[in-house]
Design a protein around this nucleic acid. Structure first.
Lengths: 203, 203
DNA sequence: TGTACATCAGTGAACGCGCGTTCACTGATGTAC
DNA sequence: TGTACATCAGTGAACGCGCGTTCACTGATGTAC
């Protein structure tokens, strides 16, 4: 792997990766085009060969974040196909884990830094896919008697809201410390989920 | 009300109000000390007589946001003291309404722009109060058979997670449009809440 | 296989901008006598 | 009631900074013949 080529070869991806690193090491406020370029080892104007402007780069970073989240959830889904209760819990836990592992990615994805989503079709596509997968999960849990009946899209939205809210509050340190100290995170998540299922999900 | 006094009289509050206005008219990115000062009609260095730095001003804005949210919820609580189901729903709806009315305030409050909460005791106090009120609400709903039994703190956390998540997803336009178009917002929230209660809450 | 040339993906100087913060200052106010 | 003075709450110039973006450029690559 030669080090000093004039042409990078895969700069676009390298920039997205650099962006994610900066994000999670230094926070959202530190994410600038110039820093990303510097980290990728190119001049500060090089990104313009690959992204129209800063917005476009953030869109790419955000999309990559959704792809990573989606991948993680897919992996969990494959490992727990036959047990709806486990599937539900492990999917939720994967969501929380992702946010803890890459908090700033999570915030960028869900904190509306990205303004006109319409202009970024990849982004729209991946988030639609994710929701469809969740609806499927809700259906299976209903079929197994774990969740109340009703339109699975609404169950999906409720589950997503619950887990997303829990994650967001956790990330923003809004959950009172006496509760966090009461039980390990995984157990806390299980208890939170148990409040909304018809029967307790397996320990 | 004389207009041109050298001494403003209540500049600290005026700055917080100006900050909230800028936030909700122009977005988080537009919130700068200089703009806030300008909007309040003072020079750009005047704020330093009242706030140590930008962080301190954001803390004050955030705290004011929590106070406003808390007030709204109090008002709802007083109007629905005797009916736990209504109380639950109207409290949740007040939360959502607040976020829709002042989206950028909501984001500042919950998006971790504020870094060291420990340094801002007012802030810690108001958020503790809010959670206690929510635990109380959960208890009453359990007593009325609306919610599953169990530690009320955990029910409170679940409810908060659910409503906060719903609100955040709504604000960030993450909820698929076909779901939003399916029913009015208030109805959608009711359905989401119904997925987690033991029995449907009144229409 | 060698050469000419178009195209691509970088460089680096330059731009204007708004920002947070500091500082010497000054006008207004409140208090002691 | 009038005066002296300390204190308070503003002003405005100045600072250095990093930013997004543009632009003329140049080195590397791929293609046609």
């Amino acid at each position: 792997m030669p080090k000093k080529q004039y042409h990078h070869g895969d700069l676009k991806n390298a920039l997205v990766q650099a962006g994610i690193e900066i994000l999670n090491e230094e926070g959202i406020g530190a994410l600038s085009l110039r820093k990303v370029a510097g980290r990728a080892g190119v001049s500060h104007s090089a990104p313009y060969a690959h992204f129209k402007d800063k917005q476009a780069m953030i869109a790419a970073i955000s999309t990559e974040g959704f792809q990573q989240l989606y991948q993680r959830i897919n992996r969990v889904a494959e490992a727990n196909q036959d047990e709806p209760a486990r599937l539900l819990f492990e999917t939720a836990y994967a969501y929380v884990r992702f946010a803890l592992d890459a908090p700033a990615s999570f915030k960028v994805m869900f904190s509306g830094i990205l303004e006109q989503e319409k202009d970024h079709p990849d982004f729209v596509k991946i988030s639609k896919q994710s929701f469809e997968r969740l609806v499927e999960l809700a259906s299976r849990c209903q079929a197994a008697g774990l969740l109340h009946s009703g339109p699975p899209e609404l169950q999906a939205l409720s589950l997503w809201s619950l887990v997303h809210g829990f994650t967001a509050l956790l990330l923003e340190r809004q959950i009172p410390s006496y509760i966090l100290e009461g039980s390990p995170l995984k157990e806390l998540l299980r208890q939170v989920l148990n409040q909304v299922t018809r029967e307790a999900i397996a320990g």
